[in-house]
Design a protein around this nucleic acid. Structure first.
Length: 416
RNA sequence: GUGGAUGUAGCUCAGUUGGCAGAGCACCGGGUUGUGGCCCCGGUGGCCGUGGGUUCAAAUCCCUCCAUCCACCCCA
């Protein structure tokens, strides 16, 4: 094979594309019902946007970005996530000037240079939502509710909703230092990764899956005990809104997001059916990000949903998304094809899905193909029928047949 | 970046102690059927991932590289 696709960049083929369309349609419908409008941003941005927004020390920025330098020496990167771009667009286009909240969603490819595995690709796709300009907690709860509603619309159940609060600019730094001190005290019992994390991003040690680390940090001070009163109040209200929405959730104090900008409410929607890639959606509040990216002081919250992972959860239903036909035209011979060709075009203009055999195949082969396409009607036009100026219309279900004048065939569109 | 597994027909996969390259599905042709589905007969289709080595003989044993998958890591 001379040409193959880049590692981690995959073709999405039919009939799976039908599944993707369904996922997008469901998401769009839900977004619309929540008053979210679509935004489309470029897939490439100046690298600084991501290193400033996501955080220089995060894995995403420090080792997973696809970067390039243009002819003027400027660093650019394929977007590893959507939020930074959306916030950039929000600031650059002065969307905050309009007042009120901005509710935006976007769907598209993201790029991270990781080792591919189940549910993880280098080019992957996210459905993304951002609510800018409201400090919550009602908007927090609504975002969580909206994410869950999308899964419900798609028809995915059995998911676990986890939530946590990471604290805000006034209480997180204090907690961070307390945790750092604690970790340096038990350094000896931490794995190499955690010792590195303890310095750069101490909250991340809660993510560690090494058993010895889990034990070592079991006694670590928890974030929930160090939240300021404002954050406690905020989190309580979010939970009460979720409660009255009848959403069940788990509070997971170890739920720590890998991007620096998150604060206060964070959440993740998990599955146990996807191996180690258990998060199908994740998000949280990022009140400081708009300012960091040069905008005004504006609170915001968002989430992203991994489309490959959602599609994987629906894999067993893929076969329902084949491309069928309403009508199959079995024209025998060149003269018949020429006669029926414009009629086919008229049927299609009326919304019918019409298929025909392009080559010279026998009637038997054509009927076989019609069956495979699950065509409801077959129009048979042989030389005999052509002479009489009519075609045979066969109902594939009832096997009933009738002769129909050629100039009336287009009316079949109204009968199906 | 680290570890493990796997590469054979378009797809899913067999292939024994090394001995002529296989099946099912799909595709093409034929039979049967009122003109398709079911059934029967036949056919096309392979550098056995790549390059080397061992051997009279390699899909099979050894090494190289490439690719894919799974896990670590990270995250959606």
């Amino acid at each position: 094979m001379e040409f193959i696709s880049i590692k981690g960049f995959k073709d999405i083929l039919p009939p799976e594309t039908g599944l993707w369309q369904k996922i997008e349609e469901c998401a769009r419908r839900v977004f619309s019902s929540f008053g979210f409008l679509e935004i489309r941003t470029p897939i490439m941005e100046f690298t600084d946007l991501f290193s400033r927004g996501i955080g220089q020390e995060t894995d995403i920025v420090s080792k997973e970005m696809y970067t390039l330098t243009d002819s003027k020496g400027r660093g650019m990167a394929l977007r590893p996530e959507a939020t930074a771009s959306v916030v950039r667009a929000y600031v650059q286009n002065g969307l905050h000037e309009a007042g009120g909240v901005q509710k935006l969603f976007s769907i598209g490819p993201m790029f991270r240079h990781e080792r591919p595995q189940k549910g993880r690709l280098r080019q992957f796709h996210q459905i993304n939502a951002e609510l800018l300009g409201d400090p919550g907690p009602l908007s927090d709860a609504e975002m969580v509710l909206m994410a869950m509603t999308i899964f419900e619309a798609i028809g995915i159940g059995g998911l676990t909703l986890c939530i946590n609060s990471l604290g805000c600019a006034s209480c997180r730094p204090g907690y961070r230092n307390i945790l750092k001190d604690y970790l340096s005290g038990i350094k000896g019992s931490l794995c190499a990764d955690c010792r590195r994390r303890a310095e750069l991003n101490p909250l991340r040690v809660f993510d560690c899956k090494v058993d010895s680390c889990k034990e070592a940090i079991a006694g670590a001070p928890s974030i929930s005990a160090h939240l300021c009163s404002g954050c406690v109040d905020h989190f309580d209200k979010v939970r009460s809104y979720l409660d009255i929405s009848k959403l069940s959730y788990k509070i997971n104090p170890n739920l720590v997001r890998g991007l620096d900008y998150y604060c206060k409410t964070t959440f993740e929607i998990q599955t146990d059916r996807l191996g180690s890639q258990n998060a199908v959606a994740g998000g949280g509040r990022y009140d400081g990000l708009v300012k960091i990216l040069g905008g005004p002081e504006q609170p915001a919250i968002g989430f992203a949903m991994g489309m490959e992972r959602v599609a994987a959860l629906l894999e067993d239903t893929v076969k329902d998304y084949f491309y069928g036909a309403d009508i199959f035209v079995a024209a025998l011979g060149e003269a018949s094809k020429s006669r029926i060709f414009p009629i086919i075009a008229d049927l299609r203009k009326k919304g019918m899905r019409v298929e025909m055999e392009y080559g010279e195949k026998g009637l038997k082969a054509q009927l076989k193909r019609a069956d495979k396409l699950k065509a409801r009607r077959v129009i048979i036009l042989g030389e005999e029928e052509l002479k009489r100026g009519e075609a045979i219309v066969r109902d594939m279900g009832t096997k009933a047949q009738e002769a129909l004048p050629l100039d009336q065939i287009v009316n079949l569109a109204g009968r199906l």
